[in-house]
Structures are given as structure tokens and as C-alpha cells.
Amino acid sequence: MRVLVVGEAATWLGGLQVALQTETNVTPPVLRHVDSVATPDWVWLRELPSRRALVLDESVARTPAVHTLCAIAAECVPPVPVIVVGDAGFPDEIIRWLQAGVAACLPWPNSVARIRSVFDLAFSGGRFVPEEALSALLVLWRQEALGEALPLSRLPVFPLGGDKATQLAESALLGISQRQYEILALLSRGLSIKTICQQLVISEGTAKTHVSALYRRLGARNRGEAIYIAAQRGARHLFET
């Protein structure tokens, strides 16, 4: 196996090498780390007909270079899967990466079993999407099926990108439901009720019902008080995204 790693990757490069190491009698994976890809790097990656992958640090995936790298990787014979590794970001970012040609988005840190399974899936031509992005993807597919595809600027940007356990813990800390937590996070961004309805694909009446229940649970009279109370109770993750 040959893996060309592009970008910073300082925090996870060693862990990736260890995770991809298989049985002792099998040739270990060879990782080549570069800041940017040059022609010799593509030649090196194409030399072996066996398993090969182009791995991008999230910092590279967030630049326009991701489109060029995915296009070149797709032209290889056989095509080289592109995998983004790091703090996998918001669902709208992940959707853009998938549209560019990325095969998998691998949050880091992750278990050895998950890392190997994601690479195996990419090698077989499949795609991997983190759990946090599935809701946004389902909304996008629903809109496409109805012939009402949203432009990228309006794709759902769910505030729950990150550790699911932390999100559930914070909603429990505040004594609110997970849906109310989502709405509170969107309110903290300054979004209007109408925009929140578009983000969460709910009616305005449903959104207002959730907001009223949220205020009652927190003992708040308005948006500002709700945000202040949540911060005072220690809901730090709420404001990180």
C-alpha cells in the first residue's frame, strides 16, 4: 500500500501509519508526506498497481486545490481514492468535498478498526460519510428528488458537527431536547426563525413551538436571555461551531 499524504498532518500522521499496519508478515504501508503535490509525487503514487490513496489534511481540503487533486486522482488507472483526514468540519464542507470527488471523510482521532474499514471501503470504490453529515445529505437528496435542489450557499449547516456525546451531554445539562439544542445553537448565530426553518426543514409553526418550549425550559424571555443562561450553565460546545 502506498499513501501520499498532503498538508500539515503533524498530529495524525504517525497514528495513521500505525493504524494501516497489518499483519507482521505483510509488507507495511508506505506513507509519503508532502506539503504540496509535485509531478514526482504522482509518479511515485502511480508506480504500484496495488492499493494507493491520496490523503489530504483538512487544511488542504478547505482550499481550491482539492478540486485539482481529486481530478488528477480520478484520471489515474485505476483511480486513486482521495480521503480527507482531520477534524472533519461542518456537513456543508463535507458535501462540497464529496462533490469535488473525495471518497471519504475520516474524523480524527478514530479507532484502528474504523480507519482500516474506511480505507478498505475507499479502495473498493465506496464512499464514507461521518454520522454528523448524514442529516444534511438527506436534506440535499430530498430537495434534489423534489426538483428543488438548494444552492451551496443554502445547504444545511448543522451546529452539531463534532462529538455526539458532548452534544447530548450539553442538552441534558440544559434540560432541553436535542432538537431544542439545535435551535438554540442556530439562534446563537443570529439566524432568523425563517432561516432556521430552512436549515432544519421544519415549518415556521413547528420552529416557534420549539422556541417557546426552549425559553420555558431555560426560564428565558427572549433569545438573548436564552443564550446567556446556556453559557452560564456551562454549554461551551454550543458556541464553538
Rank of each mutant, 00 (worst) to 15 (best):
S124Y: 08
R51M: 13
A61W: 04
R127Y: 09
E23H: 14
A113M: 07
N110M: 07
W42Y: 10
N25W: 14
A122E: 01
I95T: 04
I94C: 04
V66D: 06
V84H: 03
L69Y: 02
C70V: 06
V84L: 11
F123E: 11
Q17K: 13
R127T: 15
A103G: 10
L98F: 07
C105D: 06
P109F: 09
E131S: 09
P29E: 12
L121N: 02
S111P: 02
A61I: 06
R127C: 11
W97H: 12
S50N: 02
W12T: 11
Q17N: 12
G126W: 12
T11Y: 13
R46F: 06
L98R: 01
L140N: 01
E131I: 07
G15I: 12
V102G: 00
F119D: 01
L48A: 14
L45C: 13
G125N: 07
P49Y: 12
H33P: 03
T68I: 08
D92I: 04
R62M: 11
F119E: 00
F90I: 06
T63A: 07
I115T: 15
L134H: 11
F128I: 00
V129S: 03
D35A: 14
Q99G: 10
L54C: 11
D87L: 07
P79A: 14
A122M: 07
T22C: 10
T11E: 14
A103S: 15
N25A: 13
D87V: 05
G125C: 09
